[in-house]
Simulated assay, not measured.
Amino acid sequence: MLGFIMAALAAASSPAAEVQPVALPTPERRQELLFDAAREGRVDLIPLLIRGGADANAMNARGFTPAILAAYNDQVAALDTLIAAGADACRPDRGQGNTALMGAAFKGADAVAARLLKAGCDVNARNKAGQTALMMAAMLGRAEQVRMLLAAGADAGLVDFEGRTARAVAAVQGHQAVIDLLGETAR
Rank of each mutant, 00 (worst) to 15 (best):
A85K: 09
A10Q: 14
L69M: 13
G95T: 12
M148S: 10
L116D: 05
R164A: 09
I50Y: 05
A11D: 11
F35V: 06
D80L: 00
N124Y: 06
V169S: 08
E40H: 11
T26C: 03
L45C: 07
P15I: 10
E162K: 12
A10F: 12
L116N: 02
G41Q: 04
M148T: 15
R94D: 14
E144T: 12
A154R: 00
D36P: 00
P21F: 10
L101D: 05
H175V: 01
G95R: 14
L181K: 01
C90R: 08
A100W: 10
A8N: 09
S13D: 10
E184T: 15
E28H: 04
A143S: 15
R167M: 07
Q173M: 14
T99D: 07
F35Y: 14
N98P: 04
A10D: 10
Q131T: 10
K107L: 06
N73Y: 04
A10T: 11
V169L: 13
F4P: 03
A17E: 15
T99Q: 02
T185H: 11
P15S: 13
L2E: 15
P25M: 08
G120N: 02
M6Q: 15
A151S: 13
A58L: 05
D122C: 07
Q145F: 00
G130W: 06
G95Y: 12
A125N: 04
L117A: 05
N127H: 05
T81S: 14
R62Y: 15
L82G: 00
E40M: 12
G120L: 06
A154S: 11
Y72M: 09
E28W: 05
M102G: 00
A17L: 15
N127K: 05
P15M: 12
E18Q: 13
G141N: 09
Q131L: 11
G97I: 04
F161H: 14
T81W: 05
A138E: 06
R126D: 01
F161C: 02
L150R: 09
L9I: 06
G130Y: 07
L2Y: 13
A138V: 08
V22N: 02
I83N: 04
A54L: 05
G95P: 01
D36S: 14
S14F: 13
G95M: 13
D88M: 05
D74M: 03
A71G: 12
A177M: 09
V178G: 06
V43S: 15
R164D: 11
A105M: 03
L158S: 02
A168I: 09
A87D: 07
L101Y: 05
V123L: 03
G63W: 01
M148N: 08
R42A: 09
K128G: 07
A10L: 12
